[in-house]
């Protein structure tokens, strides 16, 4: 991998965001709205705090962490879509740029978006609801890292599908991640799912992160097992999805799909 090719793509996206207020707004708009709506719901439900202990802590913490995953996924997929919309894929794939460098650049963009959104959401939660995300404690960082990687996995998978099926599949960039939300057990424990769905959720690294978060916040016990599952699954799925991306690039080159941009 060559660093100058990765930085070229990052610089290209930074130029884009520097001049585009709608794009900057898009990064903050949904997380901010989520926080406002769910924040008030949480405040309302907090009246019953005695019946559901730690409700506020679980809910707002989960919301902020879920948005990190969502932004990590968007960082990958939207970066690809920007190239598709700009009809720039030919310029990139006819250059020495490798697929791995392309992915590395989109992952870097994803980390930047997650960092900015996390800071903004955490500050807003503190200001509006007196909620401090740092109460999750020392486990926060491994949780966040795992969620970012899960976001990458969903992002690379979605990007492969858009590359394969063309611009008409771009709606997946926003919808795919929500397919994973019910089995990520963001706002409820895994045990409330039907048994068959629990089996599927077990294969989702995000579900283990959110289980771990509840364990850490509730019982205060170290969520080692949950984290171990998340790390193992993320590692295996990341390798698998990157291999799938390479396979998709090869398929698109064989079918001439990279040069046929559009619906």
């Amino acid at each position: 991998m060559k660093l100058h090719r990765i930085t070229a793509l990052i610089v290209r996206h930074l130029y884009l965001y520097r001049r585009s207020l709608p794009r900057i707004m898009e990064i903050f708009y949904w997380p901010f709205l989520d926080l406002v709506i769910w924040g008030f719901i949480t405040l309302y439900l907090a009246r019953y705090q005695s019946q559901v202990p730690g409700f506020v802590t679980f809910f707002l913490g989960a919301l902020i962490l879920w948005d990190m995953l969502f932004r990590a996924q968007q960082g990958i997929t939207i970066s690809f879509l920007e190239e598709l919309w700009a009809r720039n894929l030919m310029n990139l794939f006819a250059s020495p740029l490798k697929p791995s460098e392309f992915l590395a650049a989109t992952m870097a963009m994803s980390v930047m978006k997650v960092t900015i959104v996390s800071i903004v959401m955490s500050v807003c939660a503190l200001l509006f609801y007196s909620y401090n995300i740092l109460i999750v404690g020392a486990w926060l960082m491994p949780f966040v890292l795992n969620l970012v990687i899960t976001g990458w996995i969903i992002g690379v998978f979605t990007t492969s599908l858009i590359m394969r099926f063309g611009q008409e599949a771009e709606v997946l960039a926003w919808s795919m991640v929500f397919l994973f939300q019910p089995i990520s057990c963001v706002f409820y424990p895994m045990e409330v799912l039907p048994t068959w769905l629990q089996m599927i959720a077990m294969a989702n690294p995000a579900a283990h992160v959110f289980e771990g978060m509840r364990t850490a916040l509730g019982a205060g016990a170290p969520p080692i097992e949950d984290l171990a599952w998340a790390v193992g699954l993320n590692g295996a799925l990341l390798v698998g999805v990157v291999a799938w991306f390479y396979r998709t690039v090869a398929y698109c080159k064989d079918q001439g799909l990279l040069v046929r941009v559009g619906e």
Partner: peptide, 30 residues
């Protein structure tokens, strides 16, 4: 591909970047 390049009527460049920014990106890429 480091030693070849192309130009065509059917390609475009990122529309939201200035001419100079586009050239800077290409210069970095290569």
């Amino acid at each position: 591909l480091q030693q070849v390049n192309f130009s065509s009527t059917y390609i475009s460049m990122p529309q939201s970047l200035t001419v100079e920014e586009n050239l800077w990106v290409v210069a970095r890429l290569y």
